[in-house]
Design a binder for these strands. Structure first.
Lengths: 157, 157
DNA sequence: CAAAACTCTACTTTGTAGATAGAGAATACT
DNA sequence: AGTATTCTCTATCTACAAAGTAGAGTTTTG
C-alpha cells in the first residue's frame, strides 16, 4: 500500500525518544534533531503540531524543551498515526473511526474492494491499537541488548 | 495509513468486471467505462498497463475488447496491488517481497517503527494473499442477493 | 537585559495523481 | 478495397501535497 510519510516516521522517532526520556525532564529540539537525525527546522514544525495534538508539551527558555504529556504505555501507535495521517483504512469507506463514503463507491453495500479493505483495516487496527510507545521502546531495548551480546541470542531462542 | 490510489481502485473494479465476464468473450473499454463509472481515457491507460503486467489481454477491431488472462480464482489482490502500487508494507524496510533499506533507518535491526510495520505487513499480506478476484466476486454476488431479498438475511445468519 | 528555547507564518521546490487529447495501427465485415 | 470498430501510444496539463528552508517573533530564566 502507500508508505508512511516521512513526517510520520520522524514524529514516531521523536516520540520514542521522548518516551525513553519520560520522567527525566524536557528534551531539546536540537538534541532530538541530532540524535534522531531529523532536519532541525522540519522537526520544529512537527513538534509544534504534536503539541497542537496534545501529545507533547513544551517549555520555553533555558532548561526548556519538549515533554511527553502522557505515560508512554498509554499512547497507542494507532492514535498517533490517525492524528497525523488520518484513518488507518486504505479507503475512507472502510474506516471505522472516520467513515466517509468514497466518491468512487457506486454501491457501498456491494463494493468488493470495500469488503476486503475492511478486513485489512481491522487487522491493522488490532495491531496498532495494542502497540504503544512504551511497548515499542521495550522491543527496541531488547533488540539493542541482543545486538550487544549476540551469543546469548542463540541460547535464549 | 495512506489511501489506495484511484488508479488501483479503478483497476480492481475493471478486473472484477472482467472476472464476472470470464469465459464469455471480450469486454469493450466503452462498456467497462460506463458500467464501472471510470473516466474513459483514464481507463484506456489503465487497461493498457494491466496488459503490460500480463493480467489482461486484448483484441482489436469489431468483436474485440479486453479479457482476463487467468481464471479469477488464481489472481490474488496481493499480486494486483503489488504490481500497481508497489510493496504492501508501509515502509520499504518492512517489505518481504521488495525489501529496501529506507533512507531514514538509522539502524535497521533496532528500528521500532520497522518492527511494528513488519507485523502490519504480515497481517495485510495474509488477507490479501488469500483473497482473489474470484472470491471477491463471490462475496459481492452474495451481498447483492441479500440486498434483493433482505428478509432472507435474518434467517440465514 | 541577554541568552536560550520554543513559536509562528510564509515560501520554495519537487514530484505525482489524475486526468485529457489526438493521431496511429490492427482487425473484421461487406 | 474500403470503412467502421476498437485498441494503442505518447504527449501534455493541472492541482495538490510532501518535504524542507528561512527568518523574524515571543517567552522564560538567571
Amino acid at each position: 500500500m502507500r508508505q508512511l510519510s516521512k513526517r510520520t516516521q520522524y514524529s514516531l522517532r521523536a516520540l520514542y525518544a521522548l518516551a525513553r526520556g519520560y520522567g527525566h525532564g524536557p528534551m531539546l529540539i536540537s538534541q532530538l534533531s541530532k540524535d534522531e537525525v531529523i532536519p532541525r527546522k522540519f522537526l520544529e514544525q512537527i513538534l509544534l503540531s504534536l503539541k497542537g495534538l496534545g501529545l507533547v508539551s513544551s517549555r520555553k527558555g533555558r532548561g526548556g524543551g519538549y515533554l511527553l504529556v502522557h505515560p508512554p504505555e498509554q499512547i497507542t501507535l494507532a492514535s498517533v498515526i490517525r492524528m497525523i495521517e488520518g484513518p488507518l483504512a486504505p479507503l475512507p469507506c472502510a474506516s471505522e473511526t472516520r467513515f466517509r463514503k468514497c466518491d468512487e463507491c457506486i454501491d457501498i453495500e456491494t463494493c468488493g474492494t470495500r469488503m476486503v479493505m475492511k478486513e485489512v483495516r481491522d487487522a491493522m487496527a488490532q495491531i496498532l491499537e495494542r502497540t504503544t510507545l512504551g511497548s515499542v521502546c521495550q522491543k527496541v531495548e531488547a533488540a539493542r541488548q541482543r545486538q550487544r551480546s549476540p551469543k546469548a541470542l542463540t541460547y535464549h531462542i
